[in-house]
Amino acid sequence: MSIIKAENITLMYGAGTSFEKTALDNVSFEIEKGEFTGIIGHTGSGKSTLVQLLNGLMKPDKGCIYLDEKNIWKKPKQIRNVRFRVGLVFQYPEHQLFEETVYKDIAFGPKNMGLEEDEIDRRVRQASEFAGLKEDKLMLSPFDLSGGEKRRAAIAGVIAMDPEVLILDEPTAGLDPLGRDALLSGIEDYHRSRNKTIILVSHNMEDVARYCEKVLVMSHGKKILHDTTESVFTRSDILEQNGLRVPQIMKVMSELKQKGINVDTSIMTVDKAFIEIINLLSDK
């Protein structure tokens, strides 16, 4: 059963003005419950617009969005509930942080959900740990954090709501490499152990290849591919035409193949490439 379904959605910015822009053009897809989906696409292709529609921050001009088979705009007054169930971490954490302290920022969601003080406190601490935000940062103003620390605070704020569907718009931009790996493995764990649905918007092809089960590719407001990660990354021609790339390792594999070495060109990660090469060397 699909948990999220987008049906022919179109969204225009500045309709009727000279800057009218069709940010999403008749996009349809379904996401199954418990799936880990990556969304990739060139700058300005409509990814952030799309995820804002999925959690009800904007309303499509045409088409419908379903959560658990219910049209989310059927009862506009209840759209808040959609936002609790579908948590969105914004592309720019600054757009999400506005309280006096980091603690209050992270507590904001759970508080709005009407949870008890104790539970809120527990969630704030758990979520900060999840996001790799040190305890001593909680009482600071969000403006006194470094770029990566702000990012972590914004992620914690959404995790604290414990959403069924977790959408992250470029969550690793600005994180240091270890932080990036730790966050993504944390999210994978959240996904696996609790069967949560995850949508990850990313420009990092290596991360998408490593963590996502499915990939949706956007270009100029249109969906151009939506398939398993392996199949999407075999279409390097389409990806390159649309401002994207395949992971570095995959490129190396296909160049070796072109030089006449019989390697598996669907390999996308260092670990698999390592095993492949070792095998080739020991076959001899």
Binding site: T43, Q91, E170, H203, G243
Partner: peptide
């Protein structure tokens, strides 16, 4: 330049 490519697609980067 302080993390100038953090939000760019691979081609833009």
């Amino acid at each position: 330049l302080d993390e100038p490519t953090a939000m760019l697609d691979p081609k833009g980067r």
